[in-house]
Amino acid sequence: ENVVSAPMPGKVLRVLVRVGDRVRVGQGLLVLEAMKMENEIPSPRDGVVKRILVKEGEIDDTGQPLIELG
């Protein structure tokens, strides 16, 4: 899985990584606010952040691509 998608609709509060960062499975990639709760979205695998497809403050839909890993 190279693309991390939104598991729920919500607002992107914080992006915790930058392009080029090495990430490990379970590491937080970004924080979504949904139903007044903050949810940290973890990396599904080890890899390198290739692209960040959303910006802080954006509203996303379920299934929307958020981050691409390489």
Rank of each mutant, 00 (worst) to 15 (best):
P42F: 12
E1R: 12
P7Q: 07
K50A: 10
L16Y: 05
D21H: 06
M35Y: 13
V48H: 08
R51N: 09
L30C: 05
I52D: 01
E38T: 10
E68D: 05
K36D: 15
R24C: 12
L13I: 12
E58G: 06
Q64M: 11
R22F: 14
R24M: 10
K36S: 14
M35P: 03
V17K: 00
V48D: 03
K55N: 10
I41F: 03
G47L: 04
V15C: 08
I52T: 02
P7I: 07
P44V: 04
R22S: 11
I59G: 05
E1D: 13
N2A: 11
M35Q: 12
P42V: 14
S5Y: 15
V15N: 00
V12C: 07
V54T: 10
V25G: 07
E56R: 09
R22G: 06
D60F: 15
D21M: 10
D60M: 15
E56V: 14
E33R: 08
R24N: 09
Q64N: 08
E56I: 14
L16N: 03
I59S: 09
R24K: 13
G70Y: 15
L30S: 00
Q64R: 11
G47P: 01
E56Y: 09
I67G: 01
G28D: 03
R18I: 08
R45T: 10
V31E: 00
E56S: 09
L69D: 01
E1A: 13
L30Q: 00
L66F: 05
V23N: 00
V19C: 08
V15Y: 07
S43E: 01
I52H: 01
L32M: 13
G26Q: 03
A6S: 11
V54S: 05
T62G: 09
N39E: 10
I67Y: 02
L30E: 00
L29Y: 01
A34T: 13
P42K: 15
N2L: 14
G28N: 08
K11I: 10
G20K: 04
V17R: 00
G10R: 04
R22T: 12
R24D: 05
K36E: 14
E33M: 12
V12H: 00
N39Q: 14
P44A: 04
P7R: 07
L69I: 12
Q27V: 05
I52P: 01
V25L: 13
E58S: 10
V31R: 03
R18H: 10
L32F: 15
L13V: 12
R24Q: 10
M37D: 06
E38G: 05
P65Q: 06
V12L: 07
V48R: 07
E58A: 10
R18A: 11
G70H: 14
R51A: 12
Q27A: 05
S5Q: 11
D21N: 05
L16G: 00
K55V: 13
I52G: 01
R45D: 04
G28A: 14
A6F: 09
P42W: 08
E68C: 11
M8C: 12
P44K: 05
V19F: 04
A6L: 07
R18E: 10
G10Y: 07
E40L: 15
D61W: 14
M8Q: 08
M8H: 12
S5R: 15
G47E: 01
K55I: 12
K50Y: 11
D46T: 08
E38F: 09
D60C: 15
G20V: 02
N39L: 15
E68V: 15
A6R: 04
D60T: 15
L66M: 11
V4S: 03
L16M: 09
I52M: 03
P7M: 08
G10Q: 03
D21Q: 14
E33Q: 11
V3Q: 07
D60W: 15
N39T: 14
P42Y: 12
V23A: 03
Q64A: 13
E68T: 10
E68L: 14
V48Y: 14
S5A: 12
L29P: 01
G63F: 07
V25A: 13
G26V: 04
K36N: 15
E33T: 07
Q64L: 08
V3L: 12
R45A: 10
S43R: 02
A6W: 08
V17C: 08
R18F: 07
I52W: 03
L30Y: 06
I41Q: 01
S43C: 09
L29V: 07
R24L: 10
V49I: 12
G47N: 02
G26M: 05
G20D: 04
A6K: 03
V31Q: 01
E33A: 09
Q64K: 11
G28E: 03
K11Y: 09
D61Y: 15
E1S: 13
V15Q: 00
V48P: 01
R18S: 11
V4P: 03
A34R: 09
A6H: 03
T62N: 07
K50R: 12
G63V: 05
V19L: 07
R51I: 07
V17G: 00
V48F: 13
I52S: 01
R45G: 05
V48Q: 06
E33V: 11
A34L: 11
I41N: 03
R14H: 05
R14L: 06
L32Q: 04
L29D: 00
K36V: 06
L16C: 11
G26H: 05
A34C: 14
M35G: 13
V12W: 01
D21L: 08
G47I: 03
V12D: 00
A34I: 14
E40M: 14
V23P: 00
R45Y: 13
V31F: 03
K55Y: 13
R51C: 11
G57Q: 06
M37V: 13
V25I: 12
G57K: 04
V25E: 12
E38D: 06
V17I: 07
V48S: 04
Q27W: 05
L53H: 08
I41T: 02
E38C: 11
I41A: 01
M8L: 09
V25K: 15
S43N: 02
G57F: 06
S5D: 06
E40K: 08
D61L: 13
I41C: 06
N2G: 10
G70K: 12
D46A: 11
V17H: 01
